[in-house]
Amino acid sequence: MLELPYIVEPRPDTGLTNGKLGIWLFLASEVMLFGGLFAAYIMLRVGGPTWPVGADILNVPMATFNTVVLITSSITMVMAWAALMRRNYGTYQLYMFATVGLGLVFLTVKYFEYSHKLHDGLYPSTSTFLAIYFTLTGLHMLHVIAGMVVITYFALAGRSMFRKNPQWLTNRVEHTGLFWHFVDLVWIFLFPVLYLM
């Protein structure tokens, strides 16, 4: 069977595994994706005659709770990687499921937030503020879902990978973690920009 090159050992010229360089290049493109939408936010805000204070329309306690949930999921993700570094598969799996669980809590809170808005007749078409709010948080939510799918996959299918080549699984989980922390990082900016300013 063909072995993938430089997925366990770093490539001599870059000093990195191909997977790590790949995920960082992908994250760079993600920065530009969200950057474009943040630019749209600035354009709408400075171009509009008025701009609401997010806290008057949105639920700050719910969003604060969700911020704490995402930050906690980042620590469980990094602990899953640390457990793999120690070759402790049971602990790794526990932290991975905890991360997915916290992702689910985040999505549930978001569901209540969205349904409350829609119930009050506040749609993306209601105002430019709500349009950019739904666009930015919706795109972010898609990223949370994508991250949860990958984390669930490695939590369930990781055992055979661990038996075959534990360092390869450790690297893959580190790369998954990089994506998950990026999703957390985007929320760290979305929260004050949309809810508090």
Binding site: G35, G36, F38, A39, I42, M43, V46, G47
Partner: peptide, 8 residues
């Protein structure tokens, strides 16, 4: 990217 709307 952020500078473009700010300059506009």
């Amino acid at each position: 990217l952020l500078l473009v709307p700010a300059m506009t």
